[in-house]
Design a protein around this nucleic acid. Structure first.
Lengths: 231, 231
DNA sequence: TCAAAAGTGTTCTTATTACACCCATGG
DNA sequence: CCATGGGTGTAATAAGAACACTTTTGA
């Protein structure tokens, strides 16, 4: 095999860490592998990048095949390319994470998604390939991102309570003693990013919480400017 | 050509944005291309990744071939993979940046480095491929990094004055009105990261500045913990 | 009437900003 | 003796952290 040929005995894939938030807990969508290598193991959804496909497009495709969702928050994180990371050859992978609203996620259209399942990020055990390392990188990136920009809202349903929002931040950031309720509310509300609805929670065995939406225009302004959101 | 074959008609490279600091100005090391495509254009140094080479190793190799330097600060930034980014085929590239001390940089050992030259980052014009975009991403990343961690020191000679350090921060961050001298010094010195030497500048037509080194142990502690260095 | 979570302000401490003059040297 | 950049402190403001009780609802 010539040297030039050997350069081309390689391929690249994308892997997508799909985050969701449910039951007060940060979740990640994993699939159970149906074929070797790592048959039966849980893994991140991913695929080889098609020859005529941009990287971001490939990541969005993997996401859509699995969840049916488009136009979702998606960010490239890091490329993993250890020589021996894939047992069948030289395959480097470009890792992405996405943030989806579990409330929008209905069924799993893709054939390879038969065994897709949400896992609590804090309870993920050994994954196929170097996927634990990839998950760690993406989680670390999400932690930083969530402090710099209000992307946390991408994970919440359209209407939410301040306590739900606080739990989201706590489950992502994992601060040792939780976040202070009064300081959290003061800070969030001072940003003028939330719109208080006239509705409240109903059917709860305690004082019902007010529901909020976020202000789409303000939100996009913040995302564009990438301002500091130090919680 | 079968589909599987077509997946393997692709390759990946690394490109390295090598930053230096000299004459109060942030610089980037570019090479002039000697062959098509983009013959004669300035470009980032880079190379295809060898089949048995990790990505970080490839980036370090490119750096060493060009500058003779090892053990240099090197960070992966982003992977660029637009379908048409390379005129000769599907080549994605993993972008890195490195920080070197221009005082350590002597000659250019590699053959392809005949035409390597430092360019002021603020004056870089049109580069080959998508290299302007890559440079922008790396510069943006450096701006953020320099606020989170004291990596700026990687760019300075072993002994430096506080004014040189301030100019470095100014040339990276480009704040509209410069940085306040007193506040900058107060902040830097309060970190206990610097060791004041007994030496001073000599031969300058004004009051000579004290020279400082940084405290290696404290520095490594900070780099490891990635603390906040808000200038 | 009880349990459970929602909601609400003030004080203290710390970090950030703004700002102007004298000093040491070489030419 | 002059031009040049080096070096220094204080006051005002803003941001963050700590902290405890009352309210509303369903069971």
């Amino acid at each position: 095999m010539s040297e030039v040929e050997s350069f081309f005995k390689s391929a690249f894939s994308v892997d997508n860490v799909i985050f969701g938030f449910d039951e007060g807990d940060l979740k990640v969508l994993l699939i159970q592998r149906g074929a070797a290598p790592y048959k039966g193991k849980w893994a991140l959804p991913g695929d080889l990048v098609y020859p005529n496909e941009d990287l971001d497009t490939a990541a969005a495709r993997v996401l859509e095949q699995l969840t049916g969702l488009r136009n979702v928050y998606l960010e490239q994180v890091k490329t993993f390319g250890a020589v021996d990371r894939h047992p069948l050859g030289r395959v480097i992978t470009i890792a992405y994470y996405s943030l989806i609203k579990i409330s929008d996620y209905a069924v799993t259209p893709a054939s390879f998604a038969q065994s897709a399942k949400w896992h609590s990020v804090s309870k993920v055990s050994e994954l196929a390939f170097d996927h634990n390392e990839i998950l760690d990188s993406c989680l670390k990136r999400l932690k930083r991102k969530v402090r710099m920009s209000p992307v946390g809202f991408e994970l919440l349903p359209p209407k939410f309570t301040l306590t739900e929002l606080q739990h989201l931040y706590e489950s992502v950031l994992n601060p040792v003693n939780g976040l202070d309720k009064r300081n959290f509310r003061k800070k969030i509300l001072s940003m003028n990013l939330l719109v208080e609805l006239t509705e409240s929670q109903a059917g709860v065995a305690h004082r019902p919480a007010k529901l909020y939406q976020f202000d789409q225009d303000k939100y996009e302004e913040f995302v564009a400017e990438g301002f500091s959101f130090d919680i």
